[in-house]
Design a protein around this nucleic acid. Structure first.
Lengths: 231, 231
DNA sequence: TACTAAGTCCGACTTAAGTCAAAGGATATG
DNA sequence: CATATCCTTTGACTTAAGTCGGACTTAGTA
C-alpha cells in the first residue's frame, strides 16, 4: 500500500495545502508521501521523539495530547479530516512537542521532513498554505487557553456542544443534537477534566432539562440556557 | 518619525524575519513599516477589530490578552523584544483574535497587511521565516495549555521562575534571581490567577524558605525545592 | 506637598472540581 | 457463554483557589 497511487493520492493533491502546485511538484509530493492504514490505539509518535515528519489525516480520528508528570492526560487537538499535524518541528527544528495516537481505525499520509523542507524552501505557495493552517491552529489554541484560564467546565462543555451542533448541521432542528464519536474519557480529557466530573455534569444538565442523553447522542432541549452557560 | 530611516530601521532588517532579503526587498519593507513610540498603557488593538496589520516590538513591553465575558483578563503572551505579534489574521483573513496593550513605554514597527501579503506571496524566504516564528509560538501555546489544564498555580509559578532565571543568566549564582518588570496584576494574569492568590503564594514560598522577595526582585533560596514544585 | 487612584496584602468564607472507593454496565476474548 | 477487562456512574470527602471586604502602600499628578 505504501507510496502507491490509490484513491487517497488524488484526494491528497486536492487539499488546500497542496493546491496550486505544478504537475512536477505534485509528482514530487506523491512520491514523498507514505499512505498507510492504522488500527485504533496505535501510537504515531511520543513527545520528545526525534522528528521524522508530519501527518495528514485522510480518514478516521487522531488525538494530540500531553501527559503531565502525575500521569494526567490532556488532549490539545482532536484532528479533523484532512488536517495535518506534527508540523511544528518542521520549522523550529525541535522534537515532537506532543503525543499522537490514532483513536479510531484511520488512514494517514506521512510526509518525511527532510525531503519536504527541501521541496518547500523555494515554494512560497506551499509555505503560504501551511501558514494558513498554522494561523487557524493558533486561533484554536488561543481560544482554548482563554477557556482554560477563565472558564469553568460547565461553560467549556456548553461551548463544545454549541460548536459541535454547528458542525453537525442540526442547529436549526427543533432538537439539535450531537453524536459523540469519541469515548467519554477522551471527551473529558479534551475538556480538561476527568470522566467523573463529566458524568456528573451530564446528569446535572439533564436534570435541568437542558440536554437529553441517549446513548452516544446528546439532544439539546433548551439552546438558550445552553448559550447562557457558554458565556 | 514615521517611516524615516532611523536607528531602528537598520535593526529591523537584521531580524530573522527579514534576513536574507535582496536589497530591493529590504527597501520595500522599510517603506512599508511605520516605526512609532508608544506610551505605557496605550492600546494597539482590541479583539474583533478589523485587521490592519501586525507589529514588531523593538523596545519596551507589550501584553497580548483576552477578556472573558465576566471581565476577567488572561494574558496569553508577554511579547519579547524583536518578536512580532498580530500576525495570525495575515493568513486566515479574520479579525484580531486578541487584545494588545503596551505595558511600558515602547517602540514598535507596524506593518500594514495588504502590502505585506503582496510582498511575501512570492517570497518563500519570508514565508519560511514567519513559519519559524509561528512554530515557536505554537510550542509556547501548547505548553501553556498543558500547564493550565493539569497544573496548579504553585507549579505554574515555579516553572515561570525557572524559565526567567534561565533567561536572566543568573542560574549559576549562589542565589539566582529574577527581576519582575511587570506589575503583580499582569504577572498574576499571565499565570492564570489573580493578585490575591499570587500574593498568598509568594508569602507561602517565603515562609518555606524557597524564595526571598526584595521589592521587585525574587531570589531563589532553594532551587531544588523549586524544581520539585515545578513538576 | 498633599491628594487621588492604583496596586498590594490579608483574613474569613465559599465553591467548583478533584480524589478515592465501590458498584454497575459494556465489550472483548478465548 | 462465561470470564475478564475496561468504561462509566455515583456518593462521600478534600482541597485549591476564587470572592469579598477592608486596610495598607506606592505612584502619579495637581
Amino acid at each position: 500500500m505504501k507510496n502507491g497511487y490509490n484513491i487517497y493520492t488524488e484526494t491528497l493533491l486536492t487539499l488546500p495545502l497542496f493546491s496550486e502546485l505544478t504537475p512536477h511538484q505534485s509528482k514530487q509530493i506523491i512520491s514523498l508521501c507514505k499512505i498507510r492504514n492504522y488500527k485504533k490505539n496505535e501510537i504515531l509518535f511520543f513527545e520528545g521523539d526525534n522528528y521524522m515528519g508530519f501527518y495528514i489525516l485522510l480518514e478516521g480520528s487522531v488525538k494530540i495530547y500531553k501527559i503531565s508528570f502525575e500521569g494526567k492526560e490532556s488532549i490539545l487537538h482532536l484532528i479533523k479530516q484532512y488536517e495535518s499535524f506534527g508540523d511544528v518541528p518542521l520549522f523550529d527544528g525541535g522534537k515532537y512537542p506532543v503525543n499522537a495516537q490514532v483513536i479510531a481505525d484511520s488512514v494517514l499520509a506521512f510526509v518525511p521532513h527532510q525531503e519536504f523542507v527541501e521541496l518547500i524552501k523555494n515554494n512560497s505557495t506551499i509555505c503560504f498554505n501551511i501558514l494558513v493552517g498554522f494561523a487557524k491552529k493558533m486561533r484554536r489554541l488561543t481560544q482554548k487557553i482563554e477557556e482554560f484560564s477563565t472558564k469553568e467546565i460547565t461553560s467549556r462543555f456548553a461551548r463544545y456542544l454549541l460548536e459541535e451542533i454547528k458542525k453537525s448541521g442540526t442547529a436549526n432542528l427543533p432538537e439539535p443534537f450531537v453524536k459523540i464519536t469519541i469515548s467519554k474519557k477522551n471527551l473529558a480529557s479534551y475538556l480538561g477534566t476527568i470522566t467523573d466530573t463529566l458524568s456528573r455534569l451530564l446528569k446535572r444538565l439533564q436534570n435541568e432539562k437542558i440536554i437529553r442523553v441517549d446513548g452516544k447522542s446528546i439532544f439539546i432541549l433548551d439552546i438558550n440556557k445552553l448559550k447562557a452557560l457558554a458565556r
